[in-house]
């Protein structure tokens, strides 16, 4: 098989990789806090934030979109918290109620403004990695896609966020009451994390599409979770898995469809699939808790007689 790998492909992989790393950082904590579905909820719920930001300012400046999305993300987290705390509703259900309602509001807002602009919900959900590589700005002698800059800076912010708040995030993820007694405000940290997730989602959705961001938020961290028990290692590993799946995904998007006689397909979708494949291999072959290892253990134990219990022999 023959590929034509050019600079556009490189940029596609770079954008995908940056988004994957940016998403994997907060994603690790979502997985640890059992809030994996929060990413999905927020990715739907930022729609009214973006629509409002647009309706109020009539521009598509990225920074304003970020602010709108961050506000919507915070609202989602706050409403979910409110409903599950005061209404005593299960948190998953509360999340579902909040994000469907916000998404509905967003849809109506967009439909109302659709006469003036094309703000296509389909584009929000799928993204268009292929087009964001063409949209370039000149930096020095190099033509860099605009998306690289926005996602790159979000990734840096996310990494800084985790480096500076590492202790607080870890404590509040594993034991919120301990974190509170140590004097960290775990509620504040929760909302900060939600905001980071929202900003990451909106940064990535232009290029990757928001649903694919869900995959990048959850799958690499979950893969890393199966491979290590150390939080720092998990963060690094999830970044590596994210980068790998960006690369493999783009490769797959170019290589796999021709096998069936089809044209190349969207890279973002294949990146999610590649991440899924990496997860699958971790699931099966993880040195500490892989499925094969466990099967072997079970077989090993099966041959052994049970140790005698007290009182049985006499």
């Amino acid at each position: 098989m023959e590929f034509n790998w050019d600079s556009l492909d490189t940029w596609t992989v770079v954008i995908g990789g940056l988004s994957a790393v940016a998403a994997a950082m907060p994603g690790c904590f979502l997985v640890l806090r059992r809030m994996s579905m929060m990413g999905d909820a927020i990715s739907h719920a930022i729609l009214p934030g973006i629509a409002m930001a647009f309706l109020l300012t009539h521009t598509r400046i990225t920074a304003i979109m970020f602010i709108g999305a961050a506000c919507a993300g915070l609202l989602t987290a706050a409403f979910t918290q409110c409903i599950s705390k005061y209404g005593k509703v299960d948190r998953g259900a509360a999340m579902g109620i909040v994000f469907t309602t916000l998404f509905a509001i967003g849809l109506i807002l967009i439909r109302q403004s659709a006469k003036h602009v094309e703000l296509d919900p389909g584009c929000v959900l799928y993204g268009s990695l292929e087009y964001s590589v063409i949209d370039v700005v000149q930096i020095g002698a190099l033509e860099v896609p605009r998306a690289v800059i926005s996602i790159g800076s979000v990734m840096c912010i996310n990494i800084l966020f985790i480096v500076f708040l590492y202790k607080e995030l870890a404590a509040s993820s594993f034991d919120p009451s301990l974190a509170n007694t140590l004097g960290f405000n775990s509620g504040l940290i929760h909302y900060l994390l939600m905001m980071v997730v929202a900003v990451t989602t909106v940064a990535a959705f232009e290029s990757l599409g928001s649903i694919i961001v869900i995959a990048m938020l959850i799958v690499p961290p979950a893969t890393a979770f199966l491979l290590t028990k150390n939080l720092a290692h998990m963060l690094v590993l999830s970044a590596v898995v994210g980068l790998l799946s960006a690369f493999l995904g783009h490769l797959g998007a170019m290589a796999i469809p021709p096998v069936f006689g089809l044209e190349a397909t969207v890279s973002s979708g294949m990146m999610a699939v590649a991440a899924g494949a990496l997860f699958l291999s971790a699931w099966l072959f993880s040195p500490s808790q892989g499925l094969f290892l466990r099967l072997g253990e079970r077989r090993e134990h099966a041959g052994r007689p049970l140790p005698p219990t007290a009182g049985e022999g006499s």
């Binding site: 997985v31 994996s36 799958v219 969207v266 979708g269 466990r294």
Partner: peptide
């Protein structure tokens, strides 16, 4: 078969399936 919880299991398969669907 893994120590991952309900939410992570749902999220993983959701993301991967939707990605595959888009592709």
């Amino acid at each position: 078969t893994t120590p991952l919880k309900d939410d992570a299991a749902m999220g993983i398969v959701l993301g991967v399936f939707f990605g595959a669907g888009a592709a």
